[in-house]
């Protein structure tokens, strides 16, 4: 029941943000649609105890500008490689291990890697990530791991585990 109520609140808040008006007609339609979606898709979303821990939200707030910095850097890097006449790229798929355990944390890590400098997650098998790099500096696996995974792992561990 608690799950359903929280899902309903989330959906209804989303509806209110989307319409952004206080007309009663919008309210009623939004309520009906939210109830419909909750009834149809009840219990499909996983447990989220970590949502209630304020410390994790704080770490998430710290994580966002950190991530954004690398994101901008990534874009400048890729843009440079694209417009450079010789295209200084050295692509390949490398394998890096991660110590994160839960699926949610791994998903966040994979998405962060995809949006940062010259790296794109291709697949996750168990605790190994296969990452496509546009420019491989080094052939040493440990160095690669530190470079690709290391900068996010610590913060993500604090947020999700």
């Amino acid at each position: 029941m608690r799950k359903k109520v929280s899902a309903f609140i989330l959906l209804f808040a989303f509806w209110l943000l989307l319409t952004f008006s206080v007309e009663p007609g919008f309210f009623v339609v939004g309520m009906l649609l939210s109830v419909l979606v909750v009834v149809l898709l009840a219990g499909r979303h996983p447990r989220r105890e970590w949502l209630l821990n304020p410390l994790r939200w704080l770490w998430l707030l710290i994580y966002m500008p950190y991530f954004f910095y690398y994101c901008i850097k990534a874009n400048l890097d890729v843009a440079y490689r694209v417009v450079h006449p010789d295209m200084p790229i050295r692509p390949g798929i490398v394998k890096v291990p991660t110590t994160l355990k839960t699926n949610l944390a791994k998903t966040f890590l994979a998405n962060s890697i995809t949006l940062t400098p010259g790296t794109l997650t291709v697949d996750i098998v168990g605790s190994d990530l296969y990452v496509h790099c546009i420019n491989i500096h080094t052939d040493d696996p440990e160095e690669q791991t530190r470079e690709i995974v290391g900068r996010f792992e610590g913060l993500l561990k604090r947020i999700f585990e």
């Binding site: 994101c71 990534a74 874009n75 890729v78 843009a79 490689r81 694209v82 417009v83 295209m87 790229i89 692509p91 798929i93 995809t114 949006l115 010259g118 794109l120 291709v122 496509h132 546009i134």
Partner: peptide
């Protein structure tokens, strides 16, 4: 820049790199 990379880079994976990062 992103779409230019989409035209210029050599294979699907490199094109995805340019497409996802720059265009997003």
């Amino acid at each position: 820049f992103g779409t230019f990379g989409l035209v210029r880079l050599p294979d699907v994976y490199n094109r995805l790199q340019a497409a996802t990062k720059c265009v997003t």
